[in-house]
């Protein structure tokens, strides 16, 4: 089936098997390998991307379901070579170790801050419930999100 999507601002048109998962489409067809696969049961969130502005688990979406959608992956988050405040936060606060969960974690945090620019610690933890990290114990991730929230509040300065 023919699909059209816009990924990180670039339009793509592809012929795909209906069962192809969006995550495999992004990784194997478009070579956007920053989106990862960590489980098979929609729990770990490593595959999180934004579809029309909503964080979704791209392992639980068929590529054909995304036909016509605008998609943002981790590769599309920095603009003009400038890191997104969340990316800066993860770097500053040591919000990652092995880095495998990080792209999904950042995009889930992106969704959280877009809905709630000033989350409490508890709200951050709840907002990241759909993303598993085995390395960090989450505390530095919470700090990374707090860093980004603060950065956004002060106009990115």
């Amino acid at each position: 089936m023919r699909i059209q999507v816009k990924v990180n601002g670039t339009a793509f048109e592809s012929d795909v098997e209906p069962r192809l998962l969006l995550v495999h489409y992004l990784r194997d067809v478009l070579d956007l390998t920053g989106t990862h696969i960590g489980c098979e049961t929609s729990l770990c969130g490593a595959c999180t991307v934004l579809v029309n502005g909503h964080a979704v688990k791209s392992c639980t979406l068929l590529a054909v379901q995304a036909n016509g959608a605008e998609i943002t992956t981790i590769e599309g988050l920095a603009s003009d070579g400038k890191l997104h405040p969340l990316q800066q936060g993860f770097w500053e606060e040591h919000g990652l170790q092995c880095g495998f969960c990080t792209p999904g974690m950042i995009l889930a945090a992106h969704q959280l801050l877009s809905r709630n620019p000033h989350p409490t610690e508890a709200e951050i933890r709840k907002g990241l419930e759909g993303n598993l990290c085995r390395c960090t114990g989450y505390q530095h991730i919470v700090k990374a999100v707090q860093y980004a929230a603060e950065k956004a509040a002060t106009g990115g300065q």
Binding site: R27, I74, F90, E92
Partner: peptide, 21 residues
Amino acid sequence: IKRKEDPRLIQGRGHYVDDLK
């Protein structure tokens, strides 16, 4: 000191084995 590893990983530009073609 912030990690040298991070810039590639926070931008989805690290390469894990499944990223290899």
